[in-house]
Design a protein around this nucleic acid. Structure first.
Lengths: 141, 141
DNA sequence: GTTGGTTTTGATAATCATTGTCGCTCAGGT
DNA sequence: ACCTGAGCGACAATGATTATCAAAACCAAC
């Protein structure tokens, strides 16, 4: 009575649209904005609203399935979390492609630094961008 | 005739309002938003427009005098660059106070990672936030 | 001191990502 | 078949940043 019969007691209740978001995230090469996800979903023939994208992204981030970062322009980028806790992405500013990199060094440094200065509830966000070799070679075009 | 007699040929030509921005940045404890800078300037009796703040900040960042970062909410924060290239700031999300930290480890890691993957024009932004010990002790209040 | 031309300034409007609002719909349970 | 509540998405609201543009300030030369 308190709780209807459904999968999880706390997680997101729906599945259909949430799985759309997850599938698109898996399709896209690197961290993507909510608008890019929306656009890609529409391109693949799925009818979904931008509001719903944002809602599920927030829920998935809370659940830990998706990670969020902020690029140097202040845009929020989202990507599926691989199993590796220290995974991060090196992104190309030209084509948007992403290369997963291991940032364990950085997270360790961050935790140590925080402890050293008496800080708690640490939150670290790294935005690492550049121009990939492919884009660099076609730059003058 | 081509060039009037003036200080620098390339840098910002003005001084008055730009120095206001620099003075306020020196006054404020940690990385600050453009709005915070504007507010603090008005508080100290200086008449300056928000547009001018943004303009000088962009110019100062280009000149390398000021560093910009993006916090986890997507807001742009600005702070004076100390001489140290690898300086970064650990910021308290409660009171806004900032502690300078040395992020040489991270910048070295970033450069090595970029080279390893054939990336160039590297841009790294780190947002390191938490709750400082003072705020933590007064949290339940 | 005045003129001419350039630069700086800042109010206002425009842009754009993100968040809030609110009926509508639909699946299950009765 | 009806109820109920969660999910959905169009639309509006918010708020930071950027663009526009006319007025003011400035400098050098006259």
């Amino acid at each position: 009575m308190l709780q209807h019969t459904f999968g999880g007691v706390n997680g997101p209740r729906s599945r259909a649209q949430r799985d759309v978001v997850l599938r698109v995230l898996a399709d896209l090469p690197g961290p993507s904005t909510a608008h890019a996800i929306h656009h890609h979903a529409l391109d693949t023939g799925v009818r979904i609203g931008l509001t719903t994208i944002y809602r599920h992204l927030a829920s998935l981030v809370r659940a830990g399935t998706v990670a969020a970062m902020v690029d140097h322009a202040g845009l929020h980028l989202y990507y599926l979390r691989s199993g590796d806790e220290h995974s991060n992405t090196l992104m190309c500013t030209e084509c948007g492609c992403g290369v997963p990199v291991n940032a364990a060094v950085v997270t360790h440094w961050a935790m140590r630094t925080a402890v050293d200065h008496g800080f708690s509830d640490l939150s670290l966000s790294i935005a690492l961008t550049g121009v990939c070799s492919r884009c660099r070679s076609t730059e003058g075009r």
